[in-house]
Computed example of a mutant assay.
Amino acid sequence: MHFVNRLTGLTYEVREPTEQDAPTVHATLRELLDDEDSFVLVNYLGEVRDVQEIGKILKDSNSSQRLWYLTFINNELVGGASLFVAPFFPFKVQTHEGRLAYWVRRKFRGMGLTYVMLYVLLSNSGVTYVSAFVDRLNIKSMKILEALGLERLALLEEAIYNVKECKLHDVYLYRGKREVALMRLREKLEERGFSY
Score class of each variant (00 low, 15 high):
residue 87 P to Y: 09
residue 87 P to A: 04
residue 87 P to S: 05
residue 92 K to G: 10
residue 95 T to C: 08
residue 96 H to V: 03
residue 96 H to S: 05
residue 97 E to L: 12
residue 97 E to N: 08
residue 99 R to P: 01
residue 100 L to M: 10
residue 101 A to W: 04
residue 101 A to E: 00
residue 101 A to I: 09
residue 102 Y to F: 10
residue 103 W to L: 13
residue 104 V to M: 09
residue 104 V to K: 05
residue 105 R to M: 10
residue 106 R to L: 11
residue 107 K to W: 04
residue 108 F to T: 04
residue 109 R to L: 02
residue 110 G to D: 06
residue 111 M to A: 13
residue 112 G to W: 00
residue 112 G to D: 12
residue 113 L to W: 00
residue 115 Y to V: 04
residue 116 V to A: 03
residue 120 V to L: 02
residue 120 V to M: 07
residue 121 L to M: 01
residue 122 L to N: 03
residue 125 S to K: 06
residue 127 V to P: 03
residue 127 V to F: 00
residue 128 T to K: 15
residue 128 T to R: 14
residue 128 T to P: 00
residue 130 V to C: 08
residue 131 S to A: 10
residue 132 A to F: 04
residue 132 A to D: 03
residue 134 V to D: 04
residue 135 D to K: 01
residue 137 L to H: 12
residue 138 N to M: 06
residue 138 N to F: 02
residue 139 I to C: 08
residue 139 I to P: 07
residue 139 I to M: 15
residue 141 S to F: 10
residue 144 I to S: 04
residue 149 G to T: 09
residue 149 G to N: 07
residue 150 L to G: 09
residue 151 E to P: 07
residue 151 E to W: 07
residue 152 R to I: 04
residue 153 L to S: 06
residue 154 A to G: 09
residue 155 L to N: 07
residue 155 L to Y: 06
residue 156 L to S: 03
residue 157 E to Q: 15
residue 159 A to H: 14
residue 159 A to F: 15
residue 160 I to P: 09
residue 163 V to I: 11
residue 164 K to A: 13
residue 167 K to L: 13
